[in-house]
Simulated assay, not measured.
Amino acid sequence: MATPDFILALRKKIGSDPLWLSGVTAVVIRDDEVLLAKRSDNGTWTAVTGIIDPGEQPADAAAREVLEETGIVAVPERLAMVHVTDPVVYDNGDQTQYLDLVFRCAWHSGVPHPADGENIAIEWFPLDDLPAMSDDMCRRIAAAVSGEPAAQYVFSQSLPGGA
């Protein structure tokens, strides 16, 4: 499903005005490989991303998006990063921006395939030989594969008190 029904209902009321949404990035790891999807809308490689449904737990959303898009069962292991994406303007003029929660997920079962039409390819890539991706997506994957036990928080400016 490309656009959730609740967003379509909101768009009927607000048109293409900016819409603040919560999203997830699921970085699925299997041994020394990461699962990536080649998007059907722009042909770029990314980790699995998606929108959190109203009332849905973020980790559940990460696992759901992986299953819906790739046919893979993945288990969220930890929150790896919290950040805000750059504003997005879609081809139809809709404007959004996302609070994105990046989860490191472990592969549990399944053979990857484009399961819902949002992607044209789903493949495992060695972590040391990734395809070309945006800097933002590379940061998300790096946060997920880092050995840090706590999530990374992205700051756009210095903290009060000079920190």
Rank of each mutant, 00 (worst) to 15 (best):
D116Y: 04
V66K: 06
Q57T: 12
M81F: 04
D94F: 11
A132R: 13
T44P: 03
D100I: 01
G93L: 06
E65H: 13
L127I: 14
E68L: 10
R78F: 11
P112Y: 05
D32I: 11
P112M: 03
G15L: 01
V82I: 11
I14N: 07
A115Q: 06
C138S: 14
L8S: 12
G23D: 05
Q57I: 14
V84Q: 05
Y98C: 07
L10N: 04
H83R: 10
V27E: 07
L10Y: 00
L99A: 13
D31A: 15
R140L: 10
P114V: 03
W124V: 09
R64F: 00
V89K: 09
D86C: 00
V89F: 06
L35G: 01
D116L: 04
V73S: 14
M137A: 02
V75W: 14
P131Q: 10
N42K: 07
W20A: 12
D136S: 13
C105M: 12
E56Y: 12
L127T: 11
R139N: 08
K12S: 14
L19W: 05
I51A: 03
E69H: 10
A74I: 05
L67D: 07
P126K: 11
D32S: 14
E123L: 13
D136V: 08
D41N: 03
E68I: 06
M81V: 01
A62N: 04
T46C: 13
D41W: 05
A106G: 08
M81R: 14
R64Y: 00
L10G: 04
Y90Q: 13
L19G: 00
A47L: 11
C138K: 15
V75T: 15
E33R: 13
P58K: 01
L99F: 14
L21H: 06
L79M: 08
L101I: 06
D53E: 14
R140P: 05
I51K: 02
V34C: 12
K38Y: 00
A63L: 05
G93T: 09
L127H: 07
E123Q: 15
R30Y: 08
A63R: 03
K12I: 09
K13F: 03
V24R: 00
I51C: 06
L101R: 02
I120L: 09
L8T: 08
V73F: 14
S109C: 11
I72T: 01
I120Y: 06
E68A: 07
T49H: 13
A63F: 01
E65S: 09
A62G: 01
I72G: 06
K13A: 10
Y98Q: 02
